[in-house]
Write a protein that binds this DNA or RNA. Sequence first.
DNA 1: CCGCATCCTCATGGATACTG
DNA 2: CAGTATCCATGAGGATGCGG
Lengths: 217, 217
Amino acid sequence: MVENIKRSYGQFCGLARALDVVGDRWNLLIVRELLPGPLRYNELKTSLTGIATNLLAERLRSLEGNGIVERRLGDVGVLYALTPWGAELREPMEALGRWGAPLLMTGRGDDAFQPRWLALALPALLRDVTAAPALELGLEIEGLLIVLRIDENGSRAVVQPGDRPGTILTAAPEIVVGLAAGGLTIDQAVSAGRLQGDAEVLRRVFPAGAGQSPAES
Amino acid sequence: MVENIKRSYGQFCGLARALDVVGDRWNLLIVRELLPGPLRYNELKTSLTGIATNLLAERLRSLEGNGIVERRLGDVGVLYALTPWGAELREPMEALGRWGAPLLMTGRGDDAFQPRWLALALPALLRDVTAAPALELGLEIEGLLIVLRIDENGSRAVVQPGDRPGTILTAAPEIVVGLAAGGLTIDQAVSAGRLQGDAEVLRRVFPAGAGQSPAES
DNA sequence: CCGCATCCTCATGGATACTG
DNA sequence: CAGTATCCATGAGGATGCGG
């Protein structure tokens, strides 16, 4: 490795410089994995199905060099975590995920899926949903319990925070994103037997899915 | 071209599917170019210094196939424009550009720069700035006049809208982003002779740059 | 096992030339 | 002007190896 003249866009522009740093393949997905909390190398590797092991190592090195990821030597081994600046990628990533939500309407197909990904997607999709007093509920998706908290300022979700909330909804991932993105009604999901939970809570959490069934071609 | 199995992440996740569609190199920069308005092929090519012509053609075809860009056959030739959905990339792109703003503090170096890029960057960086009654001013950057309008809901900028506003500021790009991102004070910019304009207007537009000079190492 | 490094193959990106 | 065609350099994907 004689040189390291990174392949930069060479543009004096915030977007271009951001892409210089996180625009390479897999980078933002690595950050997505680390948003709920630190992970080990192999956890990243198995969660990001398809990434080559040398690429993951190289990307982690690059992200670390750019101050987005930090390597922690815990008692259990090496942990990869986001720096505070890296964690601020949440906002652009939520916005991008919201923009891409319509692309989820074609269904899951044989794509991979990790319930933890919903910890990023749910608050992003439910950005305009508020509740006063605050509403806390669990979503059980493929075995993982995601705790969603909605208050007057919006919503946020964490993976396994503390106690199990009183109300718990159970649903398949396609159903949750369909409801949150407004492409599916609660009635449709419930009558198909793919959504279980208190009807009133459902209507508060998914107001976009509470209306009429969208026209089918 | 026997096959077209696009290299997809294969993940049921809004972010991953968005990246499948706009994550390839140059894609978001092409969208940035088109945000202020439609452009021709060669205008894109010269503005995006460094892009290979075959890549630009392939990217435009891909973006068109995915419903982000549309090709208009105007009287002057082919025009590339964003679809409504493509234009909605403004929000994630502004967020990414805001996140990347600290990377601009190292200065311009010999990077390329187009004044139109500030039409995206300025409203993003000045997101929290409001004014009532509305404030409209022109920013003359390297010959291009950008009209910035700030009202009680925030700010937006357009390239050459209609008339010249009454108040016009003149500045170099580094100065504008430095002020907007808070890494530079108005006094510094003015006394260096690199910023000209009405002092009171300056303080309203760049409140982040009105304070103390940040510590220098 | 975990955390990578090496090696190989093929797809993608970049530069240049050329064409309707 | 708006691309296509071509060729080479680089990056991604997959298998395997290897020290701790």
